[in-house]
Amino acid sequence: MTNRTGSLTISATDVVMNGPKNVEAMLPLTPAVFHILLALSDGERHGYAIMRDVAAHTNGSLQLGPGTLYGCLKRMLAARLIEEADERPDRELDNERRRYYRITDFGARTLRAEAERLAVAVSAAQAKRLFGRKVGLVGVKR
């Protein structure tokens, strides 16, 4: 049994083992969840590395605190967007035995769908030439 979501296939295993996973039901993602998934799309990360990546991706405009980060991670684990990695990538360097997280297939699909959704929104904004000019004033003279 397959179900097409864009160019992606949800396998029967997904449905049977984990219940029906619907990418669309996850959208829109909050900025925190989106950027955490984005950080994990490059590979496994521990909490602090995720936090630094998110700050770097957003030029410091999104600074996750420990509470926000682990609150998101907890819910993302429950939603199976991410999973804990069993192996530590840098076991010798990492003497604090942190937990590492990695993105799941479902998480990757959700991230892609959200990115596509945002891209459509950005295209619409570009079509209206919103970038580079002041917006938001009602009744402004043009």
Binding site: H46, G47, Y48, P66, L69, Y70, G71, K74, E96, R98
Partner: peptide
């Protein structure tokens, strides 16, 4: 439940930060 799962990690993140 949240503390049991994440307080150690949160402390690490806080200390490193």
């Amino acid at each position: 439940s949240f503390r049991r799962g994440y307080s150690r990690e949160m402390m690490l993140v806080f200390r490193n930060g």
